[in-house]
Amino acid sequence: MKFGIVVNEGPYQHQASDSAYQFARAALAAGHEIFRVFFYHDGVNNGTRLTVPPQDDRNIVERWSELATENELDLVLCVAAAQRRGLLDEGEAQRNGKDADNIAPGFRISGLGQLIEAAVQSDRLVTFGD
């Protein structure tokens, strides 16, 4: 089965990203494919490499990055939502005259079309949010 996963909320504030992560791990363990994880609204905040959570807490961003590396996942941050919230990759930073970029490994920035495509191409779309 091919899954599309949508994460609508940022890390730590809501359980959405945690639930999506647990779901993704279980799906991969069961031998399913994850076509794409699309981060939307405040969910784009899951993709900043600058988070520094306390040592005794889970590192939500790193956890996604590692899962992506291990399983070649496509983690996509919605570009409009990301720009509004100060999430920039190198290209976006240059284009917008900003002095830094902050995208974590394994994530990429792209448009809303990627969400529609995930919905059309996946067998199942599962959304996690507030």
């Binding site: 779901f23 599962v126 949010g129």
Partner: peptide
């Protein structure tokens, strides 16, 4: 558990989140 959660999403053609 989460394994069964995944299985449930497979058993049903569509999943709807009531956010």
């Amino acid at each position: 558990d989460y394994d069964r959660f995944v299985a449930l999403t497979c058993e049903h053609d569509t999943t709807q989140s009531w956010l």
